[in-house]
Computed example of a mutant assay.
Amino acid sequence: MPTPSSTDEVAVLTGSYTPDSGGDGAGIAALKLAPGTGHLAHDTKVPPVPVSGASFLAAHPSLDVVYSTHETDPGTVSALIRHGDGQLAPLGDPLSSGGANPCHLTVHPDGGWLLTANYGSDTAPGSVAVHRLGADGRPVELTDVAVHEGAGPVAGRQEGSHAHQMLVDPAGRYVLATDLGADSVFTYRLDPRTGTLARVAVNRLRAGSGPRHLAFAPGGELVFSADELSSTVTCHRYDAGTGTLTGLSSAPATAVRDVTNQPGGIVTSPCGRFVWVTNRGADTVAAFRVTGTTLEPVYEMPTGGTWPRGLTYADDHLLVANQHSGTLVALRVLADGALRQAGPALSVPSVVCALAL
């Protein structure tokens, strides 16, 4: 297997649960991906950063700053600056996430706001929060918290709201928040002066579906949801003028039978022809071809580990975080949407997400 030069390597950060958050991981670790081969390796020059409950990572659109959730109750979020040699250092102190168990965050495309989804707890409902970012990228002020309401029919999972993702639409006009507990996607408009959220729509999805994450197709006319509780993938039409979704078609997330399955991560291909989703339980990644507004299953392969959670597209590869087996694997994307393991899985204890920089 050829060894690429350092200029060819893609920097990758992984987030994992630490011992104080129910796992045995290191927090945030630095890796390298060789584009031509998909070979993964630890970046031994960059020590891990022991961030508690680093369940999701996001990058600033123009600064060398990354953000992490601290999935704790009460929750916090933090920023780290990434120096030219790849070294990571805290950028300011962690700030309250405005809720419990933050599980997802993203930076608004204008670079001025950090948007966080708080899953909630037995005593705290799901909510979404906004932090103003300083000129250097650090979160400096919690400007708004919007509490969700609603419930669903699945006992033990939908007694109340559980926000799971914050996603800015491709036009940058609306912010969408999935809520697994309420079977809904809440649409907000972010005020760029005050950092406050105004709710403009509540998109009710199928009862008991438990929408976890969304992924837009290029162009933004279609958006796909990974439905954790119904083990389906759904294609929705997105109205960019109103921020509303209309369900069009659904497909089972896995063809594996006789297993309780929970879809996790979902991504679309840059060309818009394919959608991939991880399956926790079946322990696979499934590929779907988008034909018009229909999802056609075309391929499914085991991830070589257990409980594949996070899914990231990076340089014609999918990076899959096998949480329970503690491995990260790179799968090469083929022209027909199928996948091939590109190299050996890399040990990353309790890994739950990856971020390609």
Rank of each mutant, 00 (worst) to 15 (best):
T291P: 00
E228I: 02
A41K: 09
F186W: 13
G126R: 01
G195F: 02
D73P: 04
T194I: 00
P90Q: 06
E221F: 06
T76W: 07
Q323M: 09
N261T: 05
L229E: 12
A89Y: 06
R257L: 14
Y313V: 14
A54I: 10
W276V: 10
A26C: 03
P349Q: 07
G126M: 01
S269L: 01
T123S: 14
A30D: 02
V12G: 06
K45T: 15
A255V: 11
L245W: 14
T294E: 15
S250L: 13
P344V: 01
L133A: 11
G208R: 13
F186A: 03
P74F: 02
A34F: 14
A146Y: 09
L222I: 08
A117F: 14
P74H: 11
L80D: 05
T3M: 12
A100R: 08
G27N: 11
R206K: 11
L214N: 10
L346C: 09
V128E: 01
W113F: 07
R340H: 11
G137C: 08
R280Q: 12
T7E: 13
V259P: 05
R199Q: 15
H104S: 10
S269I: 09
A321V: 10
V275A: 00
G126F: 02
V51F: 07
A100V: 02
L57H: 14
S127G: 09
P4A: 14
T72F: 02
Y174W: 12
S347A: 14
F56H: 13
T37H: 10
I28L: 00
A89E: 15
P35R: 08
P2Y: 10
L229G: 15
C271D: 15
D258P: 06
D169R: 09
D191W: 00
V107R: 00
L88D: 07
G150V: 00
D85M: 04
V259M: 13
S16C: 08
T44Q: 11
K32H: 09
G15D: 09
A342N: 03
A251K: 15
V175P: 01
D283K: 01
W276K: 03
S78D: 05
V154D: 13
A100Q: 10
D43H: 13
N322T: 08
L197V: 06
A59G: 13
A30W: 01
E228F: 08
A177F: 04
R332Y: 13
T293G: 11
S96M: 03
E9G: 00
T294L: 12
A286I: 07
K45A: 15
T327M: 03
G160V: 02
Y238T: 06
S16E: 04
P90C: 14
H70W: 01
V233M: 09
A255C: 09
L355D: 05
Q87A: 08
I28E: 07
T194R: 05
G264L: 06
L311K: 03
Q87E: 07
G23R: 02
V223Q: 08
D93V: 06
T303V: 14
L346Q: 03
E296A: 11
P2F: 10
R157I: 04
R138T: 12
P47R: 10
L142S: 00
P170S: 09
A330G: 12
H148N: 10
Y17F: 15
F186S: 00
L167M: 14
H60V: 05
Q323Y: 09
L205D: 01
W276N: 05
A155C: 04
P47I: 00
T291Y: 02
R138I: 01
A198S: 13
F224S: 08
L63P: 05
D136G: 15
T178G: 07
H162K: 07
A198V: 08
